[in-house]
Amino acid sequence: MVVQSAAEAITYPAVGAELDIEGISHAFDIDGATLPVLDNVNLAIAPGEFVALLGPSGCGKSTLLRLVAGLEKPRAGTLREDEVRISGPHPSRVVVFQDPTLFPWRTVWDNVALGLEAQGILKAQRHRVDDVIELVGLSSFRNAYPHQLSGGMAQRVALARALVNDPKILVLDEPLGKLDSLTRIAMQSELVALWQRKGFTTLLVTHDVEEALVLANRVIVLSDRPARIKADIAVARPYPRHRGDPYLAELRKQILGLLGLEATW
């Protein structure tokens, strides 16, 4: 159990993994030119922490997530999950992408079962699929196909598909970015509730300062490409948080300033 030395002590169940990002640099080769996207990023995330990554569009946030997920290898630096070096994808680190990317040929149930099926443990653990579909409130849609779902429902299925693996680190790449604002607010609360209940470490990429402040207990502000860490801000407020909280409003102003948008305040 980890206790944060913040204003309010927040405790986490020890399900989440520790994530160490050490001296990560990464670049892409585009038309013969090298485009640096990450520049010496160092970040230590405690088990069960909810960390939000904020930064300008195209700064390399999503690239950092792909490295954490193990979908790509960094050019320099190391990533460690619970002291073990990350060398490839693993179901203990599951990503929820901006698009739900449900497999259209599979029903909701079969989509959620994907991870267990890929790991060859579905037959023995079918109840886990039922449980997690219940958890996201889609039991009556278990036999529906993705094209029959609304955007919010599809994203819930994507969340269920990730959670069924009992991840130690949940990686969220703007998962609510394409939802309408009402659905978005509702899903933010659901996300916090799930995180509190399950205790996984969460890494969230978002464009939305308010979303970061409502959800995370630590907000990392990244610079323009190549991304460096500009600020590491602790959000020491208990949950559920309120959008109108003056403390959050003050942080929001500060973060918008860091992103060069103070004029919008």
Partner: peptide
């Protein structure tokens, strides 16, 4: 087939045979 499908399957622990049989082929049908 969109590479996003492969990314999803790989992060969920899929091996290459799973990617061919359960991702590439159904998507190509």
């Amino acid at each position: 087939v969109s590479s996003a499908y492969y990314d999803v399957a790989r992060t969920l622990g899929a091996k290459p045979s799973f990617l061919v049989l359960k991702v590439a082929i159904p998507a190509a049908l």
